[in-house]
Write a protein that binds this DNA or RNA. Structure first.
Length: 260
DNA sequence: ATGGTGGCGCGGCCA
């Protein structure tokens, strides 16, 4: 039985709810991890999502950040914080669904190298790596996905020269991504041949999407056990073409796996 | 053009 595990930074679930519901109907994923929901938990559209056939779990806040997981099967063992980091920003949602440990992340953007937000991002990544190491040890079937705000390699950047050393591409950020890979996690997208200039995010400005001036910063990382079951991984650019789109496109991993 | 667009929410922050 094939399963679809997916991620999408929707940049406001309130605005993008109709698009998200359409996308669920079209793609029929088993799991959809959302980032930048920008909703307080009492405002989460649980009922609309239930009517589409999905359960919801979420960790949200007003105006900024916010993560959620929509799934066919119920979620248990929820985690909403990095252990040891007292952080009001809602960027983490861990859950166990159908025997798979799912870590949904909205990693800090970092704004600019050298800024306070960049320092926060690097400290956050340190805490993340320590936590994920323990999660990987405890859960052979693990997927870590979301908006990483890291373009892992130059081929993930439309203009690597212009972006060299900039936030999202800097060496400390890329080193953190490699440390996640050193835990055994595989970048599902790179398990398969892909077109050159494949991206998941395009700035709203300067007609960046039309010109394909994007970055690949949304990722699905899978444990060795799940990598062996992964049969495909692709980016769906269709939602980025809609009117009033998110600046991000969804990413889909298909696995030869029974969730139960 | 040291800008541009979009979300939140109504001034300024964040991406």
């Amino acid at each position: 039985m094939k399963s679809k595990i997916t991620t999408w930074n929707v940049n406001s679930l309130k605005v993008r709810l109709p698009q998200a519901l359409d996308w669920l109907r079209q793609q029929q994923p088993d799991i959809l991890a959302l980032q930048e929901t920008k909703l307080p938990d009492p405002d989460f559209p649980t009922l609309d999502i239930a009517n589409a056939g999905y359960q919801s779990c979420f960790a949200g806040q007003k105006t900024y950040n916010g993560v959620a997981i929509l799934s066919r099967l119920p979620a248990s063992d929820l985690v909403t914080d990095l252990p040891g980091l007292d952080d009001p920003q809602r960027r983490v949602l861990g859950a166990t669904i159908g025997g798979v440990r799912v870590l949904n992340l909205y990693i800090p953007n970092g704004q600019a190298v050298g800024s306070d937000k960049y320092a926060y991002k690097l400290a956050w990544l340190e805490r993340l790596i320590a936590w994920v190491a323990r999660e990987c040890a405890a859960h052979p079937r693990l997927v870590m996905l979301g908006d990483f705000n890291i373009a892992p390699e130059d081929r993930d950047v439309h203009d690597p020269v212009a972006w060299a050393g900039q936030v999202l591409c800097s060496e400390p950020e890329r080193a953190a991504f490699r440390r996640l890979q050193d835990l055994g996690l595989k970048d599902a997208f790179r398990l398969f041949p892909q077109q050159d200039r494949s991206f998941t995010q395009w700035d709203y400005r300067a007609a960046a999407f039309r010109r394909n001036l994007g970055l690949r910063i949304d990722h699905i990382l899978v444990s060795p056990t799940l990598a062996a079951a992964c049969t495909a991984c692709w980016i769906d650019p269709a939602p980025r073409r809609l009117e009033r789109p998110s600046d991000h496109a969804p990413v889909i991993a298909e696995l030869n796996l029974d969730l139960n």
